[in-house]
Amino acid sequence: MSATGSTDAAKEEILQRIRSALGSRPAAEPAPRDYRRAGAEAPGSSALLDLFEDRLVDYKATVHRTTSDHVGDTVRSVIATLLPQGGSVLAASALPDEWLPEVTRDTGFTARELDQFAGVVTACAAAAAQTGTIVLDGSPDQGRRAITLVPDLHVCVVRAEQVVETVPELLSRLDPTRPLTFISGPSATSDIELQRVEGVHGPRTLAVVLVTP
């Protein structure tokens, strides 16, 4: 691109301006880190799962508890309840087969094709109870970002041991070089008179299937 030449000059000039602005480059104080980094509860403990559920429900997600033997049945019943009129459902390409063998796997549908699916089922990378946050990182059981964005229902399977208490614990479990999506409840807006409306452009319904061993 022809801009390369001028952008190099721009880069040099901006860096020069910064150096000139900072002058003698005073040393900075190290940041105090005495805020809470580790939670009081162990990952996956029942107190944490209760907190996680409470926070999810507060932000209008639905929570469905199950055990590892019954994930498929629970997901099927969640889909049946939340999609009473039916509609096709998609799953991340490597969602464990024992969960939902019958559901279509993502094979790289276009955005318009994704728009034809009523729901999507994925696993997750990690979750934080204190804020009711689930993170997807593009692993094969979670899929590319578009599949959890375009369909209107997202069913997310969270295993108990993936649930930590605090945001610092959550970030320490993530790989920042992967594409990450943090989800805290269904999409929402408060742009009209600060009144919260759940469900705008992303999935209007978020169902969390919480799996204990």
């Binding site: 593009g138 970002r145 594409p179 999506t181 805290s184």
Partner: peptide, 25 residues
């Protein structure tokens, strides 16, 4: 927004390719 966490946070780098080589985003 006065929320514990906003509904969506996206973090990305350059152009992403997933583990199976398919593009993401």
């Amino acid at each position: 927004t006065g929320e514990r966490m906003n509904p969506y946070t996206s973090a990305w780098g350059g152009a992403h390719t997933l583990d199976d080589g398919s593009p993401d985003g």
